[in-house]
Amino acid sequence: MELDWTTFGLEILNFLILVWVLKRLLYRPVLKVIADRKADIRNTLSDAERLRKEAQSLREQYENRQEEWNREKDRVRNRMVEEVNAERGRRLTALQASLEEEREKARVVNERRLTDLTRQAEHAAIAQGGQFAARLLTRLVSVDLEARLMEVMLEDLSRIPDERRQAVRAACATSDITVLVTSAHELSQLQRGSLLKAVESFLGRSVSCEWREDKGLLAGIRLSLGPWVLGANLQDELKAFVETAQFAGTAHAS
């Protein structure tokens, strides 16, 4: 219980030495390690915060870019839709024009086909009419009809205009021609004489005739003077009728 001053003083000295020793050997190194670790943690936290901010910035940048992309996408899509609509309208117009052209072509082809059919029908009708007339006239052939056709021949020869007659005479004067007389039935001597006389009168000189029979003429006579042919028979008349009718029908259709 007594206070020993030596112990008191030495204890003070010991304690101060201990403070110095521990400060050197323990506190400073340990506190430095703790401070370094706290600095590392602060740096790590700072880095983490920086990374977080960078990530946030990148995220905002990405979102802005994505938004910009969406707007660009919408713009491109709208433009594409407009272009598609314009192209569609243009193609529809072209298609309608093409359809109209095709329709016009079809209409023309149809009309032409109808015209052809009509013409064919007319031709067939005319041909049938000709055949019908030929059958009918075949049944109506008689001596009187033959005589009448001979008269028509003689009358036609006498009515030929002078210019034409001169042309025929000029064509027949260059050579010694034979007049070919074709008849449906055999002509009598009287008829032959009348016809020869009329031909010589027409040509203005004497000629020889060759007499032939052709049942295809149905009735009447065909007179061939070189290149010039004069007919007064049913076959030629029917043929002329049919050709005339067909020509008239074709001219009307065109």
Binding site: D4, T6, T7, L10, E11, N14, I17, L18, V21, L22, L25, L26, P29, V30
Partner: peptide, 22 residues
């Protein structure tokens, strides 16, 4: 005194322990 001796012992122990640890 004994107290001083023990104090020295504590001081040496603490110094050695501090040196070993640090």
């Amino acid at each position: 005194t004994h107290a001083i001796v023990v104090t020295w012992g504590i001081m040496v122990t603490l110094a050695c322990f501090s040196w070993v640890v640090t």
